[in-house]
Design a protein around this nucleic acid. Structure first.
Lengths: 150, 150
DNA sequence: GCGTGAATCATACTTTGGAGTGATGCCCCC
DNA sequence: GGGGGCATCACTCCAAAGTATGATTCACGC
């Protein structure tokens, strides 16, 4: 991010340098052959509008970056009284793991996982794990798709 | 969309008109008091860069619109041989509905729904409905969260 | 030091999900 | 007109999910 920004600035500087050289050339011509100021300004106008469009696109693209980092909605979590362990289970549930797989991955017994899942369902006020995953996602308790918490 | 674009063009035209008036003024001054061409060009440069940035932002914002409409990945769907009815069931699954709820909503017997679900799991090469939902989402067979197909 | 709540494990039970297999009616296409 | 794919329904069997209830341990705070 920082490097990319630096690169942009450097590129812009180089571009400006090149452009001033060009301007000097045009100005030289202008003095010699009485080229109109309008033409001169027209070139500058077009070039800098284009440059601005390019910069604008880059800026916006960077701002709404393609990464879209996940940030936990801690207030919702605390409000519902969902514990850290339950979030862990929730994340594994959302990845489509079975209770037994979750038990193995977290070094728990199947009973414990079922207990956690029950609490999750109760706290989220749903009755099925798929609903729990949906709700947890919409509450930003777990990332969208394709990410991991660990 | 088209209206907004037209509006942008009109605004741009008005802006240019205003600017040429400004330029004429500046030029007048330039002739009178020998203001340097560099100053003249500098102003134009800055103004049009800013204008370009503004236009660039608008263009990009429009292109990646704030709605982020869902478009079905038909090639993936066809390649996997998933039928329209299966997509319907998949959408209801993704909302966290049980087989029986799906049966009621689609006026089917529980058996039929189970049959559809089995086919979905087979075609998506998964063994649990939560995984199926995950995979279907990542393949853009169903919308992200909080939308509906109907 | 005692209550509270989280995390863990447990047993017994009901409900739901999923595999396997097969049947029927329908439509499309060669 | 027969084969193939789809949608529908059916039955069995087993696995997984979820409910209910309760026990134990540990940490934290008043």
């Amino acid at each position: 991010m920082k490097i990319a920004l630096t690169k942009t600035v450097v590129l812009y500087g180089l571009f400006l340098a090149g452009l001033s050289y060009l301007l000097a050339l045009i100005k030289f011509k202008f003095l010699l052959r009485e080229l109109s100021v309008e033409f001169y300004v027209g070139v500058v106008t077009i070039v800098f509008t284009a440059l601005g469009v390019w910069m604008g696109s880059r800026l916006v693209r960077k701002k709404r970056g393609p990464v879209e980092q996940f940030v936990m909605n801690e207030s919702a979590r605390d409000h519902l009284g969902i514990t850290a362990r339950e979030i862990e289970v929730l994340a594994l549930m959302s990845a489509g793991h079975s209770n037994e797989e979750i038990a193995r991955q977290l070094f728990l017994s199947l009973h414990t996982v079922k207990s956690h899942v029950s609490h999750i369902l109760f706290k989220l006020d749903v009755s099925r794990r798929t609903q729990a995953v949906e709700k947890a996602r919409s509450l930003h308790l777990i990332p969208k798709s394709g990410s991991s918490l660990v």
